[in-house]
Simulated assay, not measured.
Amino acid sequence: MKSTFHALVMEKGETKPELSVRDWNIGQLPEAEVTVKVAYSSVNYKDALVGIKGSFVKSYPFIPGIDLAGTVLQSEDSRFKEGDEVIVTSYKLGTGHCGGYSEMARVPAEWVVPLPKGLTLKESMILGTAGFTAALSVQKLEDHGLKPGQGPVLVAGASGGVGSVAVDILAKRGYEVAAATGKTSAHDYLKRLGAKRVIGREAIVDHEQKSIRKTEWAAAVDPVGGKTTQYIISTLRYGGAVATSGLTGGTEVTTTVTPFLGRAVSWLGIDSVFCPMDLRVKIWERLASDYKPEHLTSEIVREISLEEVPRALADILEGKLQGRTIVKM
């Protein structure tokens, strides 16, 4: 095991974090049971909050990256051995614990998921936290009773990571998908993923503060939040549900009890960070089988180097990225 490797390191600057690729020593990694040779990581909105805004990080220097996939080099836990291919996403990885933007990482064993059959390490990071969140959203909606043929399913923020994967999974499973995006350039892309209809982002924003409207959607995947969530709740069909997983559109939601009482709708919260391990493993296994997107490697992905990560973080914060961006070590 080599003692030095490349990592994207954060230092605390005067006004914002400073990011640079540099040599890092294995002795500088945090103490934990499993040491991983990282093959791929990915770019998520939360990574941008860390790397550009300095959110969550309490001590420097620090290695960001909330996702990683790679091969076990050393393990103090009997569940994992040298050569095992594994995935680590969420928990405190890349926020309170040095993360995946590094050729090597050391992580707690209870965070580690064995790579399921049906996925490569690269595919697991094309999915990453965003794909996991999309699949968890679909799983929760189907657990709630959603079935194909019940009506259109809306995907908000559809050209982003969560949205792109959700569109693909839902279309593969036979749902009539309506994809909402603010990017006119993404319309053909979303139709290739399986969306039957593409609508503008502003069409699903509650500017009028109306808690009830004409019904439209059997269900919705919502990685946006804010006034978009307000609109979705006001337009769900009787018994419908919205699975909310993000806050790019804001954290405040104003509604009334009317749609919940009059239409029996449900608002489902989606948490990928501390999702229980039994459910986490189940979702990854489904992402390797019946939930595996049809266009995972052909449409959704762009690959970059570690040196290109800072620019990608700035781009995702500005809403410029489409689909998923992965980082090859």
Rank of each mutant, 00 (worst) to 15 (best):
V165W: 02
T235F: 00
V86E: 06
T95P: 07
W24C: 04
G262M: 14
P64F: 02
G131Q: 09
R237I: 00
G182S: 10
K12P: 04
K196C: 07
A219K: 09
I270Y: 05
Y238I: 08
A156G: 03
G182R: 06
I212E: 13
A186S: 15
K282P: 01
P30H: 13
T325M: 11
D315N: 14
S3K: 15
T251G: 14
E308V: 10
H144C: 09
A135C: 09
R173L: 15
M1G: 14
K12L: 14
I270A: 11
S41N: 01
E11Q: 14
G96A: 15
L115G: 05
I316M: 06
N44I: 04
L19A: 03
V153R: 05
I316H: 04
Q322E: 13
P108W: 07
Q74N: 12
R280A: 01
C98A: 15
G174E: 04
P17T: 00
A220T: 06
S234I: 00
L154A: 05
V221P: 05
E318M: 06
I126D: 00
I199P: 01
K16L: 12
A134L: 10
I63Q: 03
S55K: 15
V221K: 03
P223G: 06
G239D: 03
G131L: 07
I169Q: 04
S102Y: 08
I212W: 11
G99A: 07
R263W: 13
M277A: 12
V72H: 08
A134I: 04
P30G: 13
G94H: 03
S137C: 10
G13C: 09
D278L: 07
I66V: 15
I66K: 04
D206Q: 02
L321G: 02
T4R: 12
T244A: 15
K214M: 09
W267N: 05
A32R: 10
W217G: 02
A178F: 09
V112K: 01
P293G: 07
H6M: 12
I212T: 12
S289F: 06
G149F: 01
W24H: 11
V112D: 05
K140N: 07
G240Y: 04
K328W: 10
G262L: 15
E103H: 14
I270D: 00
V57P: 09
S164I: 01
L119W: 04
K210F: 03
A243C: 13
T181A: 10
W217I: 01
G27P: 03
Y189E: 02
C275R: 08
L29N: 08
G83Y: 06
S272I: 04
S75W: 04
K92Y: 10
P152N: 08
T15N: 15
D77Y: 05
V253C: 13
G96S: 14
T258Q: 11
G323F: 03
D278I: 06
S305R: 14
G225S: 10
K140M: 11
K292I: 02
L93R: 03
G182Q: 06
A109D: 09
M1T: 07
E318W: 00
E14A: 15
E294G: 07
L141Y: 00
D206C: 07
T95D: 07
S164N: 03
K147S: 12
A69G: 13
G182C: 07
D67E: 11
I232M: 11
A171H: 09
K58F: 08
G262E: 08
E31Y: 08
E176D: 14
T15H: 15
A241G: 08
